[in-house]
Nucleic acid binder design. Structure first.
Length: 580
RNA sequence: GGACGCGUGGCCUAACGGUAGGGCUCCGGUCUCCUAAGCCGGUGGUUGGGGGUUCGAAUCCCCCCGCGUCCGCCA
């Protein structure tokens, strides 16, 4: 496992630890990267040193520098570069050849594994998306599958053993309405849907059934009757509902495939009723000292459990039947038995519910509580998306439009390519652009949808990264197997500021991956890769490779850059392209 | 009304408590040379407002304002 950044950081850490006692410093000094200006690679703030030493921060930095340099000259520590001070900071600038060798050897050794950590042994059950099977995915909640799928990839890279689950809501009123609509409306009118996909076909029946229910009491009665039949275990009701859900999921799964989102396991809510686990939850919660009953309905006293806001968490109706929340508790209790860690990707509308769920799980002494990643909705300028009001943008439409625009670009730029190549490139560019745009912003941030932004192909975008990757590929193709650098002496020719900047950035990839996994924040990844691509383009512009005296070393750098961009893009679920 | 989250140049956005970086737009350069979806330069900021903690606050605490979400024996 190679981690150039971590290795250099460790060296500096241990050097500081060796020298600290002589300076009268107790705890370890913090180390921070220095992004702006070219003051160095690693910085040590010396402000905390100033007080005990009774000197100004600048002076403290100078003393620390002197102590380190003395120790280095006496071979008590090893410094991988040179020291300088600026303000109250002590800066370490890595020795260029050392940086180049460390980074390039790491990438050469690990290839497609660069940035991936050894197994942690931790099993993670990651649940995401879990949208109700009542209609096509719309953009409002589109961050869910993208965040979830990206996080799954990142956690795996960080060494976790991840299983991705989707919880299908196949009980309750909504799916009953769907099944009723499919049976009764489909016969009457042809679907108004523009797409052949089953989810688009079926949602029209669902909408018609909803409308019919409002105007026709007999429809509402029929739906209620079926709901009761379903809950009492009636076989034909169950089959009718299951068939509607099945067909709807066929269409929804196609969209996930289009986005390159992978679900490992499909869990069905109905199974939690049939296997008795929901009933067990009711019994378990009822016996809690915090449980109460009112008119037959059971609840937990949330205030007594230390939760503000809502007073009661109901887990049965007055007639004793279970609620969605009850099944949610049963589901998480079951999941907790299957993994060391549970992670859920949830819309911000689930925040309160997640807290109540956790409280209920604690009452049941479930040892593993779910960790939640909340995201804000993608709204339209005129407000929140809603399928019923027709104020929606479907993900399928967004994909189609994005790929279409990408194809227009590719055809214009690369008229010599074949139609097959056009199709392949535009598909990966179009879908990549969408995925990128949905993960580049911190999950908690509100997003207002705009076609212009969603379909941006330049600047901070997937095509920008893919383009840099393709440029690297072009150079390597033309080099046609010319030897790459392998000796430190060759690496030492990479002294240009763009080369050094690129090397340093590439060397931070493994630690960046781990940071994303630790914080469960994937937006750092696009931000980082954008920096790699930017520095790659600067290098490309100012440092000719083919035919240059330092060709071998530069080829190594190009290969390492391509590898890092490619590995990073794959973590984002975006296809790295050899040409575009 | 209460709870949780968000508020960074015209627009979008990043930043373990450590010198506010990017992108889009706009203006000016740049393809006989490895792909110009690029590169180089420029305009534009008292990080919603006010207090506090700290050597140091976009970041932590308090108050206010604006936006989002939730507050069902629905899912």
């Amino acid at each position: 496992m190679a981690d150039p950044f971590g290795t250099f950081e460790q060296q500096l850490h241990s050097a500081l630890a060796t020298v600290a006692p002589a300076l009268g410093v107790h705890g370890a000094l913090p180390i921070t990267e220095v992004p702006p200006e070219r003051t160095g690679h690693l910085a040590v703030p010396c402000f905390v040193l100033a007080k005990p030493l009774k000197v100004r921060p600048e002076e403290a930095a100078l003393r620390l520098q002197a102590a380190l340099e003395t120790a280095a000259s006496e071979s008590r520590i090893e410094l991988p570069g040179s020291l300088s001070t600026a303000g109250g900071f002590l800066n370490l600038t890595l020795e260029p050849a050392r940086l180049a060798a460390s980074v390039l050897e790491a990438v050469q050794d690990e290839g497609a594994r660069y940035g991936h950590w050894p197994s942690s042994g931790t099993t993670v059950l990651l649940e995401h998306t879990s949208a109700n099977p009542t209609g096509p995915f719309h953009v409002g909640r589109a961050r869910n599958p993208i965040l979830g799928d990206t996080l799954a990839r990142v956690l795996r890279a960080a060494g976790d053993i991840v299983e991705v689950h989707y919880w299908v809501n196949d009980v309750g009123k909504q799916v009953v309405i769907l099944s009723w609509g499919v049976e009764h409306m489909a016969r009457l009118t042809p679907s108004a849907a523009e797409r052949e996909k089953p989810d688009h076909q079926l949602v029209t029946y669902y909408q018609q059934a909803n409308a019919a229910m409002e105007t026709d009491p007999t429809v509402a009665a029929a739906v209620d009757a079926r709901l009761r039949a379903l809950e009492s275990g009636d076989r034909s009701a169950r089959e009718a509902v299951a068939s509607g859900v099945r067909e709807m999921l066929v269409g929804m799964q196609q969209t996930l495939r289009d986005l390159d989102v992978t679900i490992d396991v499909w869990d069905y809510e109905s199974s939690l009723i049939s296997d008795g686990s929901t009933k067990a939850v009711v019994e378990g919660l009822s016996s809690s000292p915090h449980a109460g009953v009112e008119e037959g309905a059971h609840f937990l006293d949330l205030a007594a459990l230390g939760l503000g806001g809502k007073e009661r968490f109901y887990f049965t109706r007055g007639d004793g039947t279970s609620l969605y929340t009850t099944r949610d508790v049963a589901y998480h209790r079951a999941k907790a038995r299957k993994a060391d860690r549970l992670i859920n990707i949830l819309g911000e509308d689930h925040k309160q519910q997640a807290a109540e769920l956790a409280a209920a799980l604690k009452v049941l002494d479930v040892p593993t509580l779910p960790e939640s990643v909340f995201y804000s909705f993608v709204a339209l300028p005129e407000g929140r998306m809603s399928t019923r009001s027709g104020r929606v943008v479907f993900i399928d439409d967004l994909i189609e439009e994005s790929v279409k625009r990408a194809e227009a670009e590719v055809r214009a730029r690369r008229p010599e390519l074949s139609p097959e190549e056009w199709a392949k490139i535009s598909r990966h560019v179009g879908i990549g652009a969408l995925r990128y745009n949905l993960v580049r912003v911190k999950a908690a941030k509100n997003i207002t949808f705009s076609w212009e932004e969603a379909l941006s192909f330049d600047g901070d975008s997937a095509p920008f990264l893919q383009y840099s990757h393709a440029r690297c590929a072009a150079i390597l193709r033309k080099a046609a197997g010319a030897p790459a650098a392998s000796s430190v002496q060759q690496f030492s020719t990479l002294t240009d500021q763009r080369e050094q900047a690129l090397l340093w950035t590439i060397g931070r990839f493994p630690s960046l991956v781990r940071q994303c996994a630790t914080t469960l924040e994937v937006h750092h990844l696009p931000s980082y890769l954008n920096l790699v691509a930017t520095e790659c383009n600067r290098f490309y512009e100012h440092c000719p490779v083919l035919g240059a005296p330092q060709q071998a070393a530069r080829l190594s750098l190009v290969a390492a850059t391509k590898q890092t961009l490619g590995n990073g893009l794959r973590l984002l679920g975006i296809e790295p392209l050899e040409q575009m």
